[in-house]
Amino acid sequence: MRTRGRTNRRSGGGLTLNMAPLIDVVFLLLMYFMVATDFSPAEEVFRLDLPALDGGRPDPLEMLDEPLRVRLAAAGASGDAVRVIVDGPWDVTPSVRGLGEFLTESVMPSGMLFVADHPIIIDPTPHVAWKHVVDAFNAAVAAGCTNITLETSS
């Protein structure tokens, strides 16, 4: 490079553009943006508070209201589907969508059956897939419920 530059200067060839550092910088910028880009799908969360004191579970007698228990059971030939059962005298379509509709129509302010912090316990059977548990949790959160827990003991 130096030799060529001297040669150019000697021969009066004017300025030359050295391409190598430019390409270096371009590649470094490319690497920087590739590393900075997050190619994995964005993760989000549901928040859930698990009572840890006094034996680990809330005392049902201390609850002002009877909790609404939502049971999830594996259904379908392969057990991949889910059947949703809401305890009590409620007429609920046994699906996650039905649960969502029931809660939306029942929970204040759109409904009059339950306040938003009415305790809701989601109680899946052992073989229910996690996606169905999350779907039921999502339906309750979307309906405005704020006091949802998962039954881990059964």
Partner: peptide
């Protein structure tokens, strides 16, 4: 002996 309920996050994807 934490003084509050255990804070749990259930991870999902958008």
């Amino acid at each position: 002996s934490i003084p509050h309920p255990v804070r749990v996050q259930l991870a999902t994807t958008r």
